[in-house]
């Protein structure tokens, strides 16, 4: 049982959780505050990891400029997706973003192998980042994290905090008010002289860039990127976290990400312990235990959306999603 708890803490605050958390913060700006259905958030993280990774590993560009290049790519992707779709009905953005995410995943996984290394993915780009690690050398684990992991998650959580402060400041400003207005009724906002299209575009770009930064953290944590990480499920899991923690709340995605990974890890430990029991193993082996865990993810998303669309801590009156 102790292992299950420490495992839960480890995963709840680990770099994967941070990466997903930033993806969910981006989705929160787009979906939670502005009502934009970006189902291709994975593409922005893929760009973060792949473009930065390839720039460093293949082209020998230093870490910081490589990150800036990746952010430029993310901005470009947001513009390419937004220009044609943001004037159309809400679901077009959803379909086009899904399609774009799949295209990018396939391209990263199979093409430009000299940069993206096909199925193997990009590696060998994390040295610069790890070289900045000021932590004293230690063997083994501190707080269950290795030295490099700890460095990544310290940086990661600082980034999360800074971005949360930014989101908080923006969302209480008139700018954020316009976004929330657009979520409620874009025609009303338009009739008041606001350039709705421009605001949507800003939200899409900002959310995409935050997702891209999440891609950096994930890539540094694992010291590699693989295209298949960034499949459709990635975005859906980030969406689940957002709804779990509460959409249109600054800390919603953060709470959601920590809780999601902690509970998932905890469940994983419990279920795999169970599956080690020979009686249980007849019904559920280790692989099946992992399936049961993910089935629960789906079930939780459904139940949340049906019964608590405001998230587990949210206030029903303030729910951003009109779900009833």
């Amino acid at each position: 049982m102790i292992d299950a708890f420490t495992g839960a803490l480890h995963d709840g605050f680990g770099y994967v959780a941070i990466s997903y958390c930033l993806a969910a913060i981006g989705l929160n700006i787009q979906f939670g505050y502005s009502g934009l259905l970006n189902f291709g958030q994975a593409a922005f993280l893929a760009i973060g990891g792949y473009i930065m990774g390839a720039a460093i590993a293949t082209s020998g560009i230093p870490t910081i400029p490589a990150m800036l290049i990746a952010i430029l790519f993310a901005v470009a992707l947001a513009l390419i997706l937004g220009v044609p779709t943001l004037r159309l009905r809400a679901d077009y953005l959803a379909i086009v973003t899904i399609a774009a995410a799949e295209i990018l995943r396939l391209v990263f996984g199979t093409s430009f192998r000299e940069y993206f290394r096909g199925k193997d993915g990009v590696t060998g780009f994390a040295d610069g980042f790890r070289g900045l690690n000021p932590l004293p050398e230690y063997d083994g684990f501190f707080l269950t994290y290795s030295r490099n992991e700890l460095w990544t998650i310290i940086v990661g959580w600082i980034v999360v905090i800074l971005i949360c402060v930014l989101v908080w400041a923006l969302m209480r400003s008139p700018w954020g008010r316009v976004l929330r207005g657009i979520r409620e009724d874009e025609d009303a906002v338009r009739s008041l002289g606001k350039n709705v299209y421009g605001y949507k575009m800003q939200a899409l770009v900002l959310g995409g860039v935050i997702g891209c930064i999440g891609g950096f953290i994930g890539a540094f944590g694992a010291a590699s990127v693989q295209a298949d990480t960034f499949n459709l499920d990635f975005t859906f899991i980030a969406l689940t976290m957002l709804i779990l923690g509460g959409a249109a709340r600054v800390l919603g995605p953060v709470v959601g990400a920590i809780l999601f990974w902690a509970v998932l890890s905890f469940l994983g430990s419990i279920l795999s312990d169970l599956s080690a029991n020979p009686t249980v193993a007849q019904f559920m082996n280790a692989d099946q235990a992992s399936n049961v865990r993910l089935m629960l993810v789906g079930l939780v998303l459904m139940l949340l959306m049906i019964y608590r669309p405001q998230g587990i801590f949210g206030d029903r009156k303030e729910i951003a999603l009109d779900a009833r």
């Binding site: 259905l37 809400a90 959803a94 499920d233 859906f236 969406l239 689940t240 709804i243 099946q288 399936n291 049961v292 993910l294 089935m295 993810v297 789906g298 079930l299 939780v300 998303l301 459904m302 139940l303 959306m305 049906i306 669309p309 999603l321 009109d322 779900a323 009833r324």
Partner: peptide, 26 residues
């Protein structure tokens, strides 16, 4: 019957997809 919004229903269908796919894999 509850009058659930279409976007909410779409997200519910995403959850169902997750549930069923993993059930098949089970």
């Amino acid at each position: 019957r509850r009058g659930t919004g279409l976007i909410a229903m779409m997200i519910v269908s995403i959850g169902l997809q997750f549930l069923l796919r993993n059930l098949y894999q089970y």
